[in-house]
Structure formats: structure tokens, C-alpha cells
């Protein structure tokens, strides 16, 4: 069965090709490339990816404008039907701004842009996106962001932790995120937002392959091995 995925490109997205490459290399099928101004998504999608970058120049707030673009109405509707949605970096910011995920991503606590490989801990390996990892596994994935400092009120953080919706945590100091949260799932488990870039760690030439299992587990979970 063919894996039908889409990568959404906003003006200012700059990791859309990396994301498309990762999806193609792992699934064997090139994703549809969808422009932010499109009104509709291709039919029958198995997977939607919101890539990293600086959509709309980060004007107003990172991800704020993209979250209100035409295509996001279709993405929100698809997510509501259970279509898996992965948002990485700016894609994560778009997911929180659009209300698909709780919380907000604020300026890094250290003010500086952080661009390096960081250690993450897999907190929940029961989700569609993380079943290829073992619980507690430490993985190395790069980050590259200025606004990755995850914030939510304590009640929301308690709920996220209680419901197993923290997918990844930083295993080192990175950006001041509340409870070192690096990636969160929605209640239904079909939407994952994360600041680190798994699509940049799928081949040895990239310096590591720890991101590959995320795509493999999602693809196998959706269309069978």
C-alpha cells in the first residue's frame, strides 16, 4: 500500500525539502507538496507534516500567521478526523498557535538562538510516532530555534504528563522549556509537535540516524510494514 503524505510549505518555510526527503527516503514515496494558499489537501492523506523555518518571517509571533492561513483550516479539519500531523520546530509553533496542541513556544530562556545536536529522552513510546523507540531511550537530534521555550500553565502540564502526552524531553539544558518538554501529543495521539528536527537524522551522512525510527514507526503503523 502506498503511503500518501503531504508537506505544507509556508512563505519562509526552510525545512520543507528536508522533511520531504525524509518522508520519501523512509516510505519510498514522495510526499505531495502543498502551498499555504491552497484551499484543500490532496485526498486520502495518511500523514501531514508541517516543516521548520520562519513562516511569515516570524511576524507577530512565531507560527501565528501560518496558523491562520487557508491551508491550516484543512489541516485542522484533517487532524480532527484522525489524520496524523507532525509539526517540527516552526511546525510545532504553528500547531500551538492553531490550537491543535496546548501551550505556547516562547523566546529561549537564554535569549540566544540554539543550533546544535541535543540529547532527548523518549518519554512515551506508545504513540504512532514513537513506537519505534524504547521508553526512556536517549536519542540525539538537532535543534535550531530561537523560540523553543515551551510554556503552559501548571494544570495543563500536569494533565499532559498524567495522560502520557509528553513524547520527548530534553536530557540537557536547551531553552528553558517547562519540565524540559521537547515534544507533545494531542489527546487523541495523532498530532505531535516537537522542536528538535528528526528529519535531519535519518541517514549516517547526516551525523546520525536517531530520527529515522519516528518516520518508520509512523509509516509502518499507518500502512503496514
Amino acid at each position: 500500500m502506498t503511503f500518501r503524505s503531504a508537506v505544507i510549505t509556508f512563505p519562509g518555510s526552510n525545512c520543507d525539502r528536508d522533511m520531504a526527503d525524509a518522508l520519501e527516503k523512509v516510505s519510498g514515496t514522495a510526499p505531495h507538496r502543498v502551498w499555504h494558499g491552497d484551499d484543500a489537501l490532496p485526498d486520502g492523506l495518511d500523514f501531514i507534516a508541517l516543516p521548520g523555518g520562519f513562516s511569515y518571517g516570524d511576524y507577530l509571533r512565531s507560527g501565528a500567521m501560518a496558523a491562520r492561513s487557508h491551508i491550516m483550516k484543512a489541516v485542522i479539519e484533517a487532524a480532527g478526523r484522525g489524520v496524523p500531523v507532525l509539526g517540527v520546530c516552526n511546525g510545532f509553533q504553528v500547531l500551538t498557535e492553531s490550537g491543535l496542541l496546548p501551550g505556547a513556544l516562547m523566546r529561549n530562556a537564554g535569549i540566544r538562538f540554539v543550533c546544535r545536536d541535543v540529547k532527548l529522552t523518549v518519554e512515551n513510546n506508545q504513540s504512532l510516532f514513537t513506537s519505534g523507540y524504547t521508553a526512556g531511550q536517549e536519542i540525539l537530534i538537532p535543534v535550531a530555534h530561537h523560540d523553543g521555550n515551551y510554556f503552559a500553565d501548571d494544570a495543563t502540564l500536569d494533565r499532559l504528563e498524567g495522560e502520557g502526552r509528553v513524547a520527548f524531553r530534553y536530557a540537557e539544558l536547551v531553552n528553558g522549556s517547562a519540565r524540559a518538554i521537547a515534544g507533545v501529543l494531542n489527546a487523541a495521539g495523532n498530532v505531535l509537535g516537537m522542536m528538535p528536527h528528526p528529519e535531519r537524522m535519518i541517514e549516517p551522512e547526516q551525523g546520525g540516524t536517531d530520527g529515522r525510527a519516528l518516520f518508520e514507526s509512523a509509516i509502518q503503523g499507518l500502512v503496514g510494514a
Binding site: L60, A64, R68, T96, G103, A104, M106, A152
Partner: peptide, 9 residues
Amino acid sequence: QQLLANMVI
């Protein structure tokens, strides 16, 4: 509420 402010923060 819908755009200018992010009501979470």
C-alpha cells in the same frame, strides 16, 4: 483574541 494576542501567554 483570535490573532493579536496569544491568550495562552
